[in-house]
Design a protein around this nucleic acid. Sequence first.
DNA 1: TAGATAAGTTAGCCATGGCTAACTTTTAAA
DNA 2: TTTAAAAGTTAGCCATGGCTAACTTATCTA
Lengths: 156, 156
Amino acid sequence: MTKLQSQGREPFEAVDRAPEAQAEGFATVRQAHESEMAEDYVELIAELIELRGEARPVEIAERLGVKSPTVTKNISRLKAAGLVRREPYRAIFLTDAGRELAEACRRRHRIVVAFLLSLGIDEETAERDAEGIEHHVSTTTLEAFKHALQKFQSGK
Amino acid sequence: MTKLQSQGREPFEAVDRAPEAQAEGFATVRQAHESEMAEDYVELIAELIELRGEARPVEIAERLGVKSPTVTKNISRLKAAGLVRREPYRAIFLTDAGRELAEACRRRHRIVVAFLLSLGIDEETAERDAEGIEHHVSTTTLEAFKHALQKFQSGK
DNA sequence: TAGATAAGTTAGCCATGGCTAACTTTTAAA
DNA sequence: TTTAAAAGTTAGCCATGGCTAACTTATCTA
Ligand SMILES: [Mn+2]
Ligand SMILES: [Mn+2]
Ligand SMILES: [Mn+2]
Ligand SMILES: [Mn+2]
């Protein structure tokens, strides 16, 4: 219970930070939210291509829980961003850039899920929470998750 | 390395889920984002009141990294939501509801930060990532974080 | 106690990502 | 092969949360 000199932090103690550092944190969150739509879409499109050979707007809409005009609009944004290839009324495919982003997102998603599962969280909750958390995990934190997972892997 | 019957999941294995379950996950994320502004503001307002005795728009703007008209607009939303009490050109105070929400958010924030720190992540990264992650952590996951933290507390 | 400066507000702009209603195109059935 | 159903698009609406420019109010200082 006594403070050890090297860690020097009680759990649940408030960290008071410089205003600029705090601002930078919020800015990072806002940035993450800007890329979120693209990340979730390409990840899902990759999944559907793997599962079905192609990604169709209906299915994207169903799995995202949004209506099809929303999908049309967002797909055209992805196309403008060079992540997706597609002609009207046809299925959606990923460009090289899209495929790369998708792969990175899938890897990250799976690590987050595996990490939450290793904490004893049930699958539904792990998946639900990971869907949001994944966009806010820095590479540093992702590495820490992997590391903790490895430790868990060997003897609990 | 062999699958144990009870856990039955390799790390990084893809979980394939029912479309409705997946959609529900995305809906949960969208909902979390709807409450995010309110949560971050009341949390920050509570901090400033503790630190300074009152919360002023300038300081809120500085710490959030946004401009003051944004703060004015959002504060009026919080007022409409009954979280905040305030007259024009005066400092901002929390209602009972606002104070309760702020307290819950601060507790959650600190648990997330403490948990990330316990993984060996540096303070800056922990704070930055927590700022986003906190809004996507279910009570189940929060409990798991607390539990892991306790375990860490005693012998590593 | 002015007048200058700082703080706060208002008005109006913009991008994002939801939605519905109405229309078009494709696909499947009769 | 026609036609009905399903899928996809377009147009236009809305709320959110950023922003700047211009104005008002409050505070500080000479
Ligand atoms: Mn996601
Ligand atoms: Mn995901
Ligand atoms: Mn936050
Ligand atoms: Mn988020």
